[in-house]
Computed example of a mutant assay.
Amino acid sequence: MRPALAAAGIVGGLGLGAAAATHVWARHIEIHRFTLREVELRILPPGTRSVRVLHLSDIHLMPDQQRKLDFLEHLSLLRPHLVIDTGDNIASAASIPVLAEVLAPLLQRPGAFVRGSNDMFEPMPKNPARYLLPDSRPAGLTDPGEPTLPVGELTDRLSEHGWRDLTNTRSSIELGGLEVRLVGVDDPHLELDEMPAPLPPSTPLPAHGNVLRLGVAHAPYRRVLDSFVADGADLVLAGHTHGGQLRVPGVGALVTNCDIPRRQARGLSTWQGVPLNVSAGMGASPYSNYRLFTPPEATLLTLRAPKPSPVR
């Protein structure tokens, strides 16, 4: 064999080996590397006690995913003051009772949720190359049809202990000296989002005067983020992107599956000056159950009041 051909064969073999190793890591290791990401924000009114917000998203649960269930069960030990779920909880109808059982301790705490497309429609095999298009959604998505999953049952199980359903609506939760005013929308990826009417200017403040305004959506499309900012949100929470699901060192997320910039595909950033937390989520479709350089996560946000100014 000529040296050049031998070298090419070695390089090709190394390339195939690297590709195989990457596949094994993404499909069998990283997809199970469940991580708690912790964030601190000083956005509460002065003098307000700290609040721990647990942000869950994109669980995509199948009933046999025991390591994911163990991680979800462990999260209840955090004892958050508030839980926000930004959708895509399930990947099959059989997952609903399993999800409700493992979330039971968290469902007893104050919380709220919005829906994602996979709370309504069963996942289907897709061509991964579609996500590289400017719009990965199939034509006619503005009329997705009747849900193929029992979304009503899921909604009932998530709300039976008091979690607020934020589907195109507003709600509020009192957290001992802090009123959390929530506004949410149905899944923007399916173009089901309808921003609720603004609160009347005459809406009174609570007696203690302390208010935190949260905007909640599954998919962080620009139009939705703009609406939350215009509505006066202090913090916006979303999911959907899976953090890009596949990330390349030095490049980051290759796609976001929406129109948010790739650099904001996961983690804490700002949108028009308002803090935005995009969860990389805890799972993926069973037909593309892999991750690379973006492990599955939940987020614990500790919200605090500003630091007191130094006395001069």
Rank of each mutant, 00 (worst) to 15 (best):
R2H: 14
P3L: 12
I10F: 15
G13E: 07
H23N: 11
A26P: 02
R27K: 08
H28V: 05
R33C: 15
T35Q: 13
L41T: 06
L44V: 07
G47C: 04
T48C: 15
S57W: 02
L69S: 08
L78Y: 04
L82P: 00
V83Q: 02
V83R: 00
D85K: 01
I96W: 03
P97V: 10
V102H: 00
P105V: 10
P105W: 03
A112W: 00
F113H: 02
R115P: 04
E122N: 03
P123A: 03
R130A: 14
P134I: 07
P138V: 04
D143W: 06
E146I: 01
L149F: 06
P150G: 10
V151A: 11
G152H: 11
L166G: 01
T167H: 13
N168F: 02
G176M: 08
G176D: 15
L182Y: 01
D193V: 06
A197L: 06
L205S: 13
L205K: 12
H208E: 09
G209T: 05
A217H: 04
F228S: 02
F228M: 05
D231N: 12
H242Y: 10
G244L: 02
Q245D: 07
R247P: 01
V248Q: 10
V251H: 14
N257C: 14
Q264N: 13
A265P: 05
L268A: 04
S279V: 03
G281F: 01
G281D: 03
A284M: 11
Y287K: 05
N289P: 04
L292F: 13
P295K: 01
L300V: 10
L301I: 15
L301W: 00
L303W: 00
L303Y: 04
V311W: 12
